[in-house]
Design a protein around this nucleic acid. Sequence first.
RNA 1: GGUCCCAUAGUCCAGUGGUUAAGACGCGUCGUUUACACCGACUAGAUCCAGGUUCGAUUCCUGGUGGGACCACCA
Length: 820
Amino acid sequence: MTGKNKQGKKIKKENQEKNKKKNKKKKRKKYDFNEIETKWVKYWEENKIYKFDSNDTKKAVFSVDTPPPTISGSLHMGHAFGDAQQDFFVRFKRMKGFNVLNPFGTDNNGLPTLRLVEKENDVDSKSMKREDFIELSIKTIKEKYIPEFLEEIKRLGVSADFDIFYSTIDERSRRISQQSFIELYNQGREYRVDAPALWCPNCQTTIAQVELEDKDVSSEFSDIMIKADGEDLIISTTRPELFPASVAVFYNPKDKRYKHLKGKKAKIPLFDIEVPILEDEEVDMEKGTGIAYCATFGDQTDMEWQKQYNLPIKKAITSEGRMSSIAGKYKGMKIKEARKKILKDLKNKGLLVKQEKIMHPVNVCERCGTEIEFINKKQWFIKYLDLKKEMLEWGKEINWTPENMVNRYNNWVKGLKWDWCISRQIPFGIPFPVWYCKKCDEIVLADKKDLPIDPLESDPPVDKCPNSKCNSKEFIPETDIMNTWATSAMTPTIVKDLLKGTKVYEKIKDKPFDVRRNGQDIITFWDFNTVVKSQLHYKRKPWKELYINGWILGRDGHKMSKSRGNGISPKKVIKEHGADALRYLSASIGPGVATSFSDKDLIAGKKLVKKMINASRFVFMNLQEFNGRKPKNLEIIDKLFLTKVGLLIQKVTNLFEEYEPSKAKLAVEQFFWQDFCDNYLEIVKKRVYQGEGDEKKSAQYALYKGLLAIVKMIAPIMPFITEEIYQEYFKKYENDKSIHISSWPKPEYIEQKNLDEVHKFAHFVEILEAIRKWKTKEHKSMNSEIILTLTKKSYEELEEMKMLGDLKNVSHAVDIKQGK
RNA sequence: GGUCCCAUAGUCCAGUGGUUAAGACGCGUCGUUUACACCGACUAGAUCCAGGUUCGAUUCCUGGUGGGACCACCA
């Protein structure tokens, strides 16, 4: 045996130096991921690798309903993770032979876009014609924001067909949205009534709940004396300015203090308003004096009480945020001003009993920070509270990944209290195709063939009011626009509309999409509303599968947010580590799971890229005279290796089919690193260096097949490095223009005969491990020569398998003896 | 307040009703071979707590604790 003895650190260093020199000599090109990744992005685009073939009726279609991101800046990490995870199964399906319909849309019809366009062009949407503003916003987004955004999306390697593109404000989306409105109206599902709306006095618009923010503000909690049936009663409030809109006073039915006041009247000071005293369990006995007063509309509870007890609606605050005429001498004052004045007047009359400074959370407009108000307005609603039972059924028709996410949907449905208010009072968005008779308020709808239409710019399709009793010829256009979810809930219809006139359209028009993927935060908005609209319009589910992607938290384990300052830019990560590494990281999260951002995993992804390049380089270095054909006889160990590859293919295929790309990635990665690189490559090394004839060809064939399968299976996750390897090395033998449209590997050598033997491969590896362990323990180098003594059983098995030669090579054994 | 998810080595993350609980990062020791020092080999290191079901629980059930997310509320 020749083994080197323990070496000092000096020698170690010397060796490192030697190695550096060696590497310099080779002048090996470093893998420059930025250069290479950009190269393939360009190649894929130029060669239309991800094009959906809208005329191919033979191939099965795999259709995806993609969330259109709101574009008001650059790509954030949430987009990157979600889009990457969607891309994993999309690429898999494409390689599986599906004609993949993976469109791309952007959401540009909400408040964020309004503000972006105003800022960008220095205009005020309120002083512009709505039509002009829409045009301007389409131009602005199209020219600058969408191209920039798409560039980042493409750089991430998203394999969408960007020719199948929509914006939620484009003409098609407006038409479909208005069509939907008219159809649901004709179904009797839409109605228009007075309703409270969230109103921002500063922005002068109603706003959606999602646009609210909690803000802690200091305020004064005032105890004010009122008269109740001649008796003094103290109420506590932070909003005395709403006194003119008082409609009732409440106490808790369990509260003995006030039981005797049931059915009596209370008198609100300064305004001399008499209101009923009512009981309700919502009242918190501990809060203040246990008496709550109800005005139109102080808050959510006020609205509920108004409905429940059929209380009158009074308007104390105008849309400009000033006191209305019912406020008497306070009319015209700003809210806070009026509050001050009213408190002062109460104090002068000795009715202000106590004042306490408190911090309490209020709802403010997320844009400008102004406290929101509730105002009363005629609004359009989609009636659906009667459908709760059906909604729950509709949820069950869809396959949820992960399954538990259906609970989000169910809980939302069960908690619904109001019909869906679809009107918004902002100057930008999709108009309602509606006019009203000036005289009798009769509703006139646009003609479907005229859509999209803006009633502000057109006349109704009738000369006179359709109401036979009214002969008015004057109409008022609706100025409100539709809530953006009313449009984005139509994305499946919008995408299909893009394909109208193609052969595939006929094939898919009456079918649900295969899958929609999105984050868990919009299940209750986007997903729920899409299900409802699809069922109301087409009586079918919008998609078969709903995949909720895993999402990424900041390094601190909290949601990335500006206020926490824990956001990480995908652009920067891609620049520093490559898109493959970022995609690798997003592939470490399963569906519906949240994980903190991990730099370690990013590095692991980077290392995997490097390892794959090196392994491929090695394999092809030894395939010089390989002809790509299968030799007559495969060595047993090579065949068993391919059996293992086959088993892996089966496993990984199933995992992708089951929408578990993170598990698929883990399985391939472990196999590649351990079985392929650490063991199999070592096993066949000598044979490909020095072997001859079939013995060599067998190893070459197995290396080729094994590596190709591995590279293909990792391709959906890391499309860049795999394309690089495919084009650089495999292209000589394979014909496809891109690995991403090549066929998914098929398992081979998995006949029972081979499965029965595959444990022998493991046994071989066990022996290798034992030898390595021994050498390590003895401080011998791995290539030190040994004399090996095997147990009789092992020896016989290896002999029978003709693997003694391989073992000799890989363990550097000069002789192998048979023991007991 | 409602709902959901998670809890496994110093860290991240798999898996399992029953032999030795996988892998990565990090730590330690050793090695330097015609892919790879962003290397290889080897070592040490883990099932949150309390009950229950079971012959047997890290796994299933109940409760607790801790972390996270979503929704709602906040006179």
